[in-house]
Simulated scan of single mutants.
Amino acid sequence: MTNPANPKPSKPSKSSNSATHRARWITLVAAGAALASVTAGALPASARQNPAPAPATARIGDQRYALDEQKLAQLMTPDGVANGTMVRVSGSGVPGIHWTKAAGPVSQDPAASFRIGSMTKLFTSTLVLQLVAEGRFTLDTPIREVLPDTIPAHWAPITIGQLLSHTSGLRAPCGDLRDGLGLTPEKVVAAWTADGCPAPEHPVTTQQYNGGNYFILGLAIEKVTGRSYADELQRRITRPLGLRHTYLPRTGDASMPSPSLAEPTPKEPWAWAEGGMISNAPDMERFMKALLGGRLLPPAQQAQLFVMPKLAATSKELPYSQGGLAYSKLSDGTEVWGKTGSMAQYSNGAFGTAGGRRIVTYSFLPTPEATKQDVIARVVGIVEAAL
């Protein structure tokens, strides 16, 4: 994996190694799918045998943007990997490049809502970087200075920036997190910080994705603003961008808005600032364009979205930037930034190229018998065909 020095998209290369390429997505999908069942299966023979027509294309700068509609249609056909799939693709400033479809037993409404899971982290990291811009704290501020009664005194210093980039050394939780809707942010964080829990790794040697980092950041947001995370989310992001279908449900609220992409499960998980939000494809596309395009952050903080921490180079898994964006390079050399997320029955993701010039948002319903590797392959296939 190449650590980019800047967010400029690279020119397509003709060489690729599919095995290595797919391995880069393992943590991206697996971490986002912790609360969803993952499935196995292959494309039906009829789909494999049909010759693909020439993809729709358009020029974006000096690159050629190919939207492979046939490949996307094949990947969206219900099979052993997914019961139903929604995909939305756009190319900013390119007339005619806009594609939205749903297949299988899911809502055909392009504005249907779904639980975005760990994609919530992108909203949390945006709020944190906005607070950095306002001087409420810095990326180098030890989190214990913000939350002295929450973070144990015997822990080695962990900074705001380390939490954002999953380089905090935080280990697995030692408390019980099975209370579902009965949990609170404080109870969740206590599962990492209570007496008897192992201290974070120090010195930290690897970048390790950990949802606990973002629960702690959610509490930091509330502490320095004096408002709830949900209020700050609305005040700073969803209302200014006009995201009318994007919100954090109240504690204990397991309902889904109508239309929703799929029928809600009887009891939904809750993950607050780490993974609890609800949105839809048009809203997520608008958010990603605003985030990658620099509309939500001042230049200094915008740059942090694309800076890879030193530990990312030692990671055996997909790297995350200093601003919490997952990074990958597609088989043609295109660099993409974004996040996956799973919650309840949904497995989702949103990725884009630098500046938000191209965006893909997807959500699918994994089948109960699926394997992690097949879900990874499905995600890679969708992003490759779309971007």
Rank of each mutant, 00 (worst) to 15 (best):
M1K: 05
N3F: 03
A5C: 08
P9A: 02
S10L: 14
P12N: 05
P12A: 08
T20H: 10
L28A: 04
L28N: 01
A34S: 14
A42Q: 13
P44H: 10
S46D: 12
A47Y: 03
R48D: 09
Q49T: 11
Q49L: 15
P51G: 11
A52W: 12
P53A: 13
A54I: 07
A56N: 12
D62F: 11
R64H: 12
K71N: 13
Q74E: 12
M76N: 08
D79P: 04
G84Y: 00
M86C: 07
M86D: 00
G91M: 11
G93L: 03
V94G: 06
W99A: 01
T100C: 10
P105G: 13
A111F: 04
S113P: 02
M119R: 04
L127Y: 13
V128M: 06
A133F: 08
A133Y: 09
A133E: 15
R136G: 00
F137G: 04
T138M: 01
P142Q: 04
T159I: 12
I160Q: 09
I160Y: 03
Q162M: 14
Q162T: 06
L163S: 05
H166C: 02
H166G: 01
T167V: 02
A172C: 01
G175D: 13
G175P: 09
G180W: 12
L183H: 05
T184F: 10
P200N: 02
P203I: 00
T206S: 05
Q208T: 07
Y214K: 02
F215Y: 15
I216Y: 04
G218D: 01
L219G: 11
A220M: 03
I221A: 10
G226R: 08
G226F: 11
E232F: 03
Q234W: 00
D253E: 15
A254W: 11
T265A: 14
W270H: 11
W272I: 07
E274C: 12
S279E: 14
R295K: 15
R295Q: 15
Q301C: 09
Q304H: 13
V307Y: 00
A312K: 07
T314L: 14
Y320C: 04
Y327E: 03
L330D: 02
S331H: 09
T334P: 00
G341V: 08
G341E: 00
S342N: 11
M343G: 01
S347Y: 08
A354N: 09
A354Q: 07
R358D: 02
T361F: 10
T361D: 13
T361I: 14
T361K: 00
L365W: 03
P366N: 02
Q373Y: 06
D374A: 10
V380T: 12
